[in-house]
Every structure is written in structure tokens, then in C-alpha cells.
């Protein structure tokens, strides 16, 4: 009976002595790692990742520059590159703008006047300023007035599609993506250029893309 009473006291005493041993772990935390955006990162899954975006936009941009109707026309064509007609039908969660923005910026920088880019996504912003200008609310712009905003000659279209396969025993997931890019003539609908980028990945880890 005496031993039974002594046991809780012993446990309490040892817990107290152990807690007394705890000290502040006075070391630096794990620093943020800067990774090469062109290579696979630390967290890898079966979705479309940063290195895929870079690789596909670079590949498409270089290929577009070999199309004479776009890169060698006597009058630089007006091109619209945005995500409006670029659909994501795949099982991957992705912001489509990351693909089309990068492609537009790369292409605009690389074309050096061989193409003109129309910012259709900024049409409201442009119209708002035009309205203020026409109403005489603002004045002093240095660019000559035009009858309207620039019309597009060609516009990017495309879609992201995927096929999924899962092994229920191992939890292994395999996903094949196909990202199709097409440049469409806005007068007659002719597709003047097409290309696609595909990737197939398998993984077991549960990666969440946001």
C-alpha cells in the first residue's frame, strides 16, 4: 500500500526533473530554399509543374517564331495570346494564365516587332481611358487618337487534357497530360499553326496543387 502511494510521487518527481531539462532550441530555422525554376523541385507530383511551364512556353515560343505568316510577314500581324480560348479539361488544377502569360511575354520580347500583341484582357482599361478622353475629362495624351482599339489577326486557342490511371493496391497514380496550342486566323478560322506538349508522370506521394 505504501508502495502504491510512492509510485505517483516518483512519476511526478521524474516528470518535473525532465521538464527542468527542457531548454530553448536556440538555432536558426530551416531557411527558405531558392530552387532552379527550370528543374524539378523538392515537392513533386503528377501535375503540371513549374519546370513544365517553362519548358512548354519556351518550346512553343521558339516554334511560333519559325512560322512565316507570323514572324516573317511584310506587315506585322496583330496577335492575341491569352487564356480566353485556352481550356483546362484535365484533372489537374492549374491557373491557365501561367501558361499563356509566359508564352505572350516570351513571344513579345523575342519577336522584336515581328508581331504586334493586342492586350485584349486590358480592353476595359483602354476603353475607360478612351471614354474619358473623348468626353474631354482628360487631355494631354501624346499618342494619336485611333478610331478604335486594335483588331486581332490571330488568336491563341488550345486545351489541356489528361488521362489518369490509379493502382488501388499501391496507391500509385499515373497521369498523362497533353497541352495543345493553336493559332487561329480571326478572319476565316484557319488554324495556321499547331503544336502540343505532352508529359506522363507517375507518383505515389499525395501532392496537393493549389
Amino acid at each position: 500500500m505504501r508502495r502504491a502511494r510512492a509510485l505517483p510521487l516518483l512519476v511526478l518527481a521524474s516528470a518535473f526533473s525532465l521538464s527542468a531539462c527542457q531548454t530553448v532550441q536556440n538555432t536558426a530555422g530551416t531557411p527558405t530554399q531558392y530552387l532552379d525554376p527550370g528543374s524539378s523541385g523538392v515537392v513533386r507530383g503528377v501535375g503540371i509543374e513549374g519546370q513544365d511551364i517553362r519548358s512548354m512556353s519556351d518550346e512553343m515560343m521558339r516554334d511560333l517564331l519559325t512560322v512565316p505568316a507570323l514572324a516573317n510577314a511584310s506587315i506585322s500581324p496583330n496577335v492575341i495570346v491569352d487564356a480566353e480560348y485556352f481550356q483546362n479539361e484535365s484533372s489537374s488544377r492549374i491557373n491557365k494564365n501561367i501558361i499563356t502569360d509566359r508564352l505572350r511575354v516570351d513571344l513579345n520580347r523575342a519577336s522584336r516587332g515581328r508581331m504586334q500583341f493586342v492586350g485584349r484582357q486590358y480592353a476595359d482599361m483602354v476603353q475607360s481611358e478612351r471614354n474619358l478622353n473623348q468626353a474631354g475629362v482628360v487631355s494631354g495624351g501624346t499618342i494619336a487618337r485611333t478610331a478604335g482599339q486594335l483588331a486581332g489577326d490571330y488568336r491563341l486557342g488550345g486545351r489541356i487534357t489528361s488521362i489518369d490511371a490509379r493502382d488501388p493496391r499501391s496507391g500509385m497514380i499515373e497521369r498523362t497530360h497533353q497541352i495543345t496550342f493553336e493559332m487561329v486566323n480571326l478572319q476565316n478560322g484557319q488554324i495556321i499553326w499547331s503544336n502540343y506538349y505532352d508529359l506522363r508522370k507517375a507518383a505515389q506521394d499525395d501532392i496537393i496543387y493549389r
Binding site: 527550370g38 519546370q51 517553362r54 519548358s55 512556353s57 519556351d58 518550346e59 523575342a110 508529359l199
Partner: peptide, 9 residues
């Protein structure tokens, strides 16, 4: 003469 290309797999 230009930026290096992206890695192509």
C-alpha cells in the same frame, strides 16, 4: 545573343 533556352526533356 539571346537568353538560354529552357531545358527540353
Amino acid at each position: 545573343s539571346e537568353p538560354i533556352s529552357a531545358w527540353k526533356r
